[in-house]
């Protein structure tokens, strides 16, 4: 009986180690990537944000209605020209795949800035810096400044565009922000 008790201890340790090794502690849900391959290399991926339904936060001074309700945006003068927003981010199939932050700051000696961080939990994050001025066609163009995990070895461009929702249905949104990324592997990594 003592021998079976000792065998049980060893078996218990082995089962515990095997369970901890083979059963993942975290398993992120993945959606299929909706990627288009560019003719001359690189991948195009389109994300969008339905406005206002995907807005998590709009932080800006002197807002008539706070979003979310109860948000106390600092009244400090330091934040005078800043608009910080958080959103849910959707893929081309209109499925939420991540969250995003957009920071826009105007004025100051260093000029205007517009930046995005897109965070896709199962894939990684990207840091995008945009040109403040829109180009012809209502696009704003930016570049991938840094990426993590799946995006760490990529470089490329992004476009931002506001598309008005013209649908007349009851559940129509005001519009959507479209972000189209065109990323390609860095030459030194190939």
């Amino acid at each position: 009986m003592f021998k079976s008790f000792i065998a049980g201890i060893l078996l218990g340790v082995a089962v515990g180690v095997a369970a901890l090794y083979y059963v993942p502690a975290v398993d992120q849900v993945r959606e299929q990537s909706m990627i288009e391959v560019k003719p001359n290399g690189g991948n195009i991926e389109s994300f969008h944000i339905n406005v206002p339904t995907d807005r998590i936060m709009v932080g800006a001074p002197n807002q008539q209605v706070a979003l979310p309700l109860g948000l106390e945006w600092p009244s400090n003068n330091l934040f005078a020209g800043i608009r910080a927003e958080l959103f849910k981010l959707r893929n081309a199939k209109d499925i939420v795949v991540g969250i995003a932050s957009r920071v826009a700051a105007s004025g100051g000696e260093r000029g205007d800035i517009i930046e995005w961080v897109l965070h896709l939990p199962a894939r990684g994050s990207v840091y995008l810096t945009m040109q403040p001025e829109a180009v012809i066609g209502g696009y704003r163009v930016g570049e991938l400044r840094a990426g993590t995990r799946e995006f760490s070895s990529l470089q490329g461009q992004v476009t931002e565009r506001w598309i008005v929702d013209t649908a007349a249905s009851d559940d129509a949104t005001a519009g959507r922000i479209e972000l189209k990324t065109e990323f390609v592997g860095r030459l030194e990594d190939q």
Partner: peptide, 20 residues
Amino acid sequence: MKYVISLIIGMLVGIAALFL
């Protein structure tokens, strides 16, 4: 039966020891 019970108790002790 007593061998099975001691094996199961041993396993539980083993798992507890692992976590400790």
